[in-house]
Nucleic acid binder design. Structure first.
Lengths: 285, 285
DNA sequence: ATGCCTTACGTTATACGTAATTATT
DNA sequence: AATAATTACGTATAACGTAAGGCAT
């Protein structure tokens, strides 16, 4: 039986030109390589080399054999990579969401329900979420609506509502009881945390003339919220997970876009193994 | 390093369903196969099986791996076959001729000039000879003309001339001195030996109404020539190699088509190694 | 009881490295 | 002298088979 080590040896010889150099590269002795090639010739029942007393080189058969050997070694490499990738996919649950909140709860929940699984989650825009679910990049995605696809399972869950947060001295703070429309804030400079996904598009849509001071570091963001007069935003969910700043006033927003209902979605074929996760999701209200 | 035996083992397991049956088919012990698969998993760093206490079956990774393994094993098989075929080609000289005569001389000549080489020769029609020369099926072909191809080397050699052979009592026997045209024989039933290649098309062309009694067995053919009144044919070359029947009259033929000049042709790239053969060919006259 | 898989253990076979040999530059 | 390939030989590793153990049908 021809073995892959022999094909590697052959390829190495072709690459280095002499047995001694190839042997050194392969970290084996020169005689070992010499014998390996003799055995390969024996097994293929074909001479692969032209031999002189202290010279050896590939003949036509050998050159042809090297080409095949390279292709074969590559396809073995491919096999390893693909099988490993498949395995990695099979032992990770990847959740993609249009907004951050679902990841806060889902991470711990998935870890508990599927011990040993690697859980990953990320914020992504909606088209990429749908594409990623289809391609296997995500097993679960969270959208603000039901995509109504017969291949997909969709479960509506809890809602998230956006609030404006202000220092008590801010002119709009008096609207805390009545609520206000985001458009009233258009043109103001506001503080935003960077990875808020879908919320960002709401802000841009309803406050097209505002300047957004986007903070990538949460500590810096919190510091600025505490020490400046700048308006910022929180949601019922962010308050639940990170608490409310006591020295800030929460102003409800009256635009319907500022409330979204989370729709958790997976492939129908994947639902059986994810059933436990879907069943513990918060209900419709 | 993953080895091909392991891939074979994996494929065998998939084919037979259990380790024991696969091991039996592979002519190894069951524990050996068990270990072989464990090692494969180790090397791919991926579980390939779902194991229960006394049951084992491929998981998703394993099924994917089997598909790859099958392809790889096939390509190794391909490699062996192709390299062996290349080797065989490199150690055979195959001569194709449009008529039999060149093969009578060329066989022995090539054997002498290229000891150790396998010599094969066959009669074939002209389009297939040209195609075969191009594809490597033939290294030398013999045509009745120069194909005038810049890729090919062509050397004109000796001529072969067709004669009518008759029993002395045959009406046409008196034409032995003057010669005759083949057309005069048209309509007569004549004896032909089967593998005469290009000559056959000459007969068909010039004697479209004749019936040809084609003999595939040379002994039968000779017997019929000796015991019947039927006209038949010989050439200067067939007489040289097989002798002339004493009790037959040779009538020269006056059609120009009944003499052809052999053109020995090879690829220019092949000429160097075939030089010795071409140099010993009979000259232009 | 039978079939199937795994682990343990002793053995064998195969592949290795070192050393020696021969040849070439 | 230095480089390169092969052959010879003793060794070590790795793969094997047998035997034993556990589990399921």
């Amino acid at each position: 039986m021809v073995e892959l080590t022999q094909l590697q040896h052959l390829a190495a010889f072709q690459k280095h030109g002499t047995l001694s150099q190839a042997a050194e590269a392969l970290h084996i002795s020169q005689p070992a390589l010499s014998r390996s090639m003799q055995k390969l010739e024996e097994e293929l029942q074909v001479p692969l080399f032209e031999r002189q007393k202290n010279k050896i080189r590939l003949n036509h058969n050998g050159q042809l054999a090297v080409e095949h050997a390279r292709r074969i070694l590559e396809s073995v490499q491919d096999m390893a990579e693909q099988v490993q990738a498949a395995d990695r996919r099979s032992r990770t649950i990847s959740l993609g969401s249009c907004v951050p909140a679902p990841t806060w709860a889902a991470g711990p929940a998935l870890s508990n329900l599927y011990p040993g699984m690697t859980i990953s989650s990320e914020i992504q825009d909606i088209p990429k979420l749908l594409e990623g679910l289809r391609s296997g990049l995500y097993q679960i995605i969270v959208l603000p609506y039901d995509p109504e696809d017969s291949e997909l399972y969709c479960q509506a869950a809890n809602r998230e509502t956006l609030y404006l947060t202000l220092p008590p001295s801010h002119p709009f703070a008096k609207k805390a009881d009545t609520g206000m429309y985001l458009e009233e804030l258009d043109g103001e400079t506001v503080l935003l945390y960077s990875t808020i996904g879908f919320w960002h598009s709401i802000h841009v849509k309803l406050m097209p003339h505002s300047r957004f001071l986007i903070q990538h570091d949460r500590a810096t963001f919190t510091e600025l919220v505490n020490t400046t007069m700048l308006p910022s935003f929180m949601t019922n969910e962010s308050i639940r997970y990170f608490g409310k700043k006591n020295d800030r006033v929460l102003v409800p927003l009256l635009n319907p876009e500022t409330t979204i209902r989370f729709h958790y979605i997976c492939k129908k074929s994947d639902y059986p193994r994810l059933k436990a996760f879907f069943e513990q999701l918060p209900g419709k209200e």
